[in-house]
Design a protein around this nucleic acid. Structure first.
Lengths: 326, 326
DNA sequence: TTGTAAGCGTTATCAC
DNA sequence: GTGATAACGCTTACAA
């Protein structure tokens, strides 16, 4: 492949001039520019991006560390982030951590050594101490010290779910969700605000019998056996808010298996937008997150890093989706 | 960050020696190695991968050009390919083309300029002429000249579907699917073997009244309005094979809307494994593809490129999934 | 067994 | 306006 040297020689100019032409930097006489551009076209010269990265010490790549991109919501997030980055001329590297802290650390190290521009973090693990502040970091749904973040308005979502269930006449409420805690971590994620918003609102309304089922973070999909038992036991419960649609789908299945009708006997509200892989025969009433808006916020943040503008955290509005389960 | 020079100076050796130490190449006296390794640890030296890419003129990145990673099957493919590459020490760059040939070409150009090691192509567009043979290319589900490919055994899948429907007693069969043809392309993809296998088997069995509904490639999800009309019109049809589960889900919905029971009145077989985003209340009987095996085959192929071993095309077995629709 | 130096393809800083 | 030339941080002959 032709290099800048070949172009310079062929055009009878210095390589600095060619560089000026391709970067539109500095002064170049019109005729010189035209001559150079002609040779560039002839030789089909394309600047070698690795060499550019070499001088710039950054490579135009944004990495996304994500637990599992087959999860419906995460998959959409990947999709929209990729689209957004493409607009800005960045490339997306996807790093699936499977929620394993070791894999996250391997990736962080690799990304640093590769001089990746920006890393978008989506994790529940306490990797605070391993975050190299030389990388431009952005966190989704999780707060790390000095790392700007984007999150859905989970707290408002919790309130919205509570409000809806109470207005629908539910008297005995239940919350079901993992504790959103990753490995080796004492920290609380934005996601737990779903629970907190829900609880606060419910108690404010004087419903003090709400049951809070909290279990260790797993794969985001399956809920533990004993949670199934507790669902069955509490026959008085008539309204359940689940931390995600995946959980809601399992809860609905469990309820109907034990003869309770949804939404007639028990109303169930999920989180993420109302869809699931499990074939329920109905859509889930749900608090929806907006992956496109989230991606846009992340895109703007990356741009702010690039332009060295001040970066402000972003809370993205959620919405109510009326499905068949509540 | 410490560079190889810093290490060399601190350890009182030449940079070549440090290079030998970190690459386990050439001869290094034991004591020298230990001394250097000590300094490397002290300085927390990590080789700059961009500089390495510079000399090697490749960057350890594998790119995947894919229409849309939110599509269930594609999403899983992305997931498993990422896992596979991680094992081999490669990083995955995801490039969503939205099936647009222009976006594919922009990406191909970019990937070439970035000296990406390998590009995995998943496209229905005729980009044959734009494929730079200097890139290591791998194609999924599509044959390009001189490009090794991986594909599911779509032909066998078509036969399997036909066999099942006929054995279930269906007499009036229908095939529904896009023509798998992208923009500006006269070419046929591996995917159309689903149709061909199905048709061949059906005709072999003497069923000559099979209806073949073929429509222009869209977004893989929605089927055109007139196809809906044709489904309604052909009330005699009692068995339908659809090119994908997404299509099957829509077909089932359409049938039930017009009062035909699935599978009692009409049996429907899909392709991809039986799941869909649409809440059907039942799972789809389907020919399943195995994304993990596909990813493994791709991984092996990439490795073969790397090891300069001969590369053989791979056809991955499909399987039958008994769902509720047939 | 080790060190020096060339080279990878750019960008950026100087002189001229 | 333009052209040498020195980085950027590594790998790899080639010499010693």
């Amino acid at each position: 492949m032709a290099s800048i040297k070949d172009v310079a020689k062929q055009a009878g100019v210095g390589i600095a001039t060619v560089s000026r032409v391709i970067n539109y930097s500095g002064y170049v006489k019109k005729e010189t520019r035209e001559k150079v551009e002609k040779v560039i076209a002839e030789l089909e010269f394309k600047p070698n991006e690795i060499a550019r990265s070499m001088t710039k010490q950054k490579n135009g790549i944004v990495a996304l560390i994500i637990p599992n991109s087959t999860h419906l919501f995460f998959g959409e997030l990947v999709h929209f982030i990729e689209q957004e980055l493409f607009e800005y001329g960045y490339k997306l590297m996807v790093c699936n951590s499977s929620e394993k802290i070791e894999k996250e650390l391997v990736y962080l190290e690799m990304l640093k050594n590769n001089r990746v521009d920006t890393v978008i973090l989506l994790t529940n693990n306490d990797i605070e101490d391993y975050l190299d502040k030389k990388l431009s970091l952005i966190s989704f749904d999780r707060r790390f010290k000095d790392v700007p973040y984007v999150a859905s308005d989970n707290y408002a979502g919790g309130i919205m779910a509570a409000e809806y269930l109470i207005e629908s006449g539910c008297k005995n409420l239940m919350f079901i969700g993992d504790d959103a805690q990753g490995e080796n971590t004492p920290v609380i994620t934005e996601v737990s605000n779903r629970r907190i918003g829900f609880m606060n609102y419910v108690k404010e309304k004087g419903l003090n019998n709400v049951i809070n089922i909290e279990y260790p973070l797993g794969d985001y999909v399956k809920i533990p056996y004993d949670v199934h038992e507790r669902i069955k036991k509490h026959v008085e419960v008539d309204g359940i808010f689940c931390i995600s649609d995946a959980v809601a789908a399992e809860v609905v299945t469990e309820l109907e298996k034990s003869g309770r009708k949804v939404p007639e006997d028990v109303k169930v509200v999920g989180f993420d937008g109302g869809r699931s892989f499990i074939n329920l025969g109905k859509s889930i009433t749900s608090i929806g997150q907006n992956p496109k808006k989230i991606a846009e916020a992340i895109g703007k943040m990356i741009n702010a890093y690039y332009e060295k503008e001040p970066i402000v955290n972003q809370i993205i509005p959620i919405y109510f989706f009326k499905g068949d389960t509540a």
